[in-house]
Nucleic acid binder design. Structure first.
Lengths: 248, 248
DNA sequence: AGGGCTCGCTTGTTTGTACAAGTTCCCCTA
DNA sequence: TAGGGGAACTTGTACAAACAAGCGAGCCCT
């Protein structure tokens, strides 16, 4: 059962993507949308809040909402999982474990993951047949067993861990910067030493806030970029009725 | 007049930062918070939604909300202005125009900015006395005049344009990747040619969706990183393959 | 001791109402 | 013609009331 506001959001999103509401144009007012869908205004507000969170529309008090763009920023699942992102965009992709071993946790790792022993995995991932990403992932001890059971060429670690252990990656913290390729990076990614790489360091946790893994992912320059839409409007969302809500 | 839910959010945020609610612990229930603040449950939901958007707390149906972290990750809200970001973090910073000239817009620029002539500005910015950022900004014709009136060592272009022309940068689209330093980049940033730079390309618009500028900002590696916190619910970031949209 | 089940608690969704605050645009006036 | 005033419209905030859905703890039975 999908929530009402999600269905309304889907429909609006489709209309925007189809060009019914061109970029720069105004969206119908909340009351109009409410009447059209036979829903309360609060429900419509939740729907447009979703679109605002995706960066598709912007709003300010007093004026009609405007369409900002057609490209939908993607979900957390796609940011977290290389496989899900690649699949959603129709790319051919693969993965291969290069090295895998247990070792004692460093001080920082022990603090972040809350355990003394960790499983370190070096994984090379490819897009359209080209190696583009080198992952150095460190798993907490309590998931190490499940990770070790995965095949070396596992396509989607995220999905495999969910299927085999019911593990869900719920929250993530990401740090993005640029680094020069080291000797190992260069050899595996097929670039020269010292050439630029886009680095994404992340730590993910479960729903309960329990740390699962921390990782250092390096993308070959030019292969991938991160995109984001933002607005200054502090509270583009929110809603009204009964129970408000909203994430921005 | 600050909204009620914002005051509640502020208070909760302070409590989290002060350790009243430690990382990993449960937040009071919505009803409890509502009673404590004498507000409706909906208002409290708006407040915690703000914290969720900041990545401070996570939630799932049926279980109490949990505290995810203490660091408020607002860096992407500050993505608009180098000066505002630097000031908020207590850094010494500066800026200097290296070159500035009007020229005809390229095809891509004309499409993005909606005008035939543009103002291109090359600006070097420093942090703690070190040059860290090289901005190649292209302004739309209608703001070119206001930009040209700014002093060459203007600290905050964003604030200066607001003060002088009432201009507000409301929405932004950003693409983040890594590139090798070119000859000019290397000389001005004081690094070797080919060394890695963190690149942020952006296009910003006003409240009405009118394009203001498009820019190619390059950070010296190690000087700055972008950070994001997000949950499986919704997030503003997406990966993009290749250079599909920002070719010059 | 272990497993299953129920019940209470908590968050999620939805509707309704009311007022506040900001925008847009038209009309009237100087 | 330029500017001011104001009315209509639109989004933002806040309240109250339900019900649905998921979680967790404790109870009971085997």
């Amino acid at each position: 059962m999908v929530a009402r506001y999600e269905r309304i959001a889907d429909e609006l999103r489709k209309e925007i993507l189809a060009g019914v509401h061109p970029v720069g144009s105004q969206l119908p007012s909340e009351s109009e949308l409410a009447e059209r869908h036979g829903a309360a205004r609060g429900t419509v507000r939740q729907a447009v809040a979703v679109l605002a969170a995706e960066g598709l529309v912007g709003s300010r008090q007093g004026a009609r909402r405007i369409v900002l763009g057609r490209v939908r920023s993607q979900s957390f699942a796609e940011l977290h999982s290389f496989a899900q992102w690649a699949r959603a965009n129709g790319y051919r992709f693969g993965g291969q474990v290069i090295e895998q071993r247990r070792r004692p946790a460093s001080g920082a790792e022990a603090a972040r993951l809350g355990c003394e022993e960790v499983l370190e995995v070096l994984r090379l991932r490819s897009l359209e047949g080209e190696p583009v990403l080198l992952e150095r992932t460190v798993y907490a001890e309590w998931v190490a067993g499940a990770v070790e059971k995965l095949p070396a060429d596992c396509e989607s670690v995220t999905e495999a861990l969910y299927a085999s252990a019911g593990l869900v990656f719920a929250y993530g913290e990401h740090l993005i910067d640029a680094v020069a390729a080291g000797a190992v990076d260069a050899r595996l990614l097929g670039v020269r030493r010292g050439s630029p790489l886009l680095r994404q360091r992340r730590t993910t946790t479960t729903h309960e806030g329990r740390p699962v893994e921390t990782s250092d992912d390096r993308y070959r320059a030019g292969s991938v970029a991160f995109s984001i839409r933002n607005s200054i409007g502090a509270n583009p969302l929110a809603r009204q009725a009964g129970d408000l809500r909203f994430e921005r």
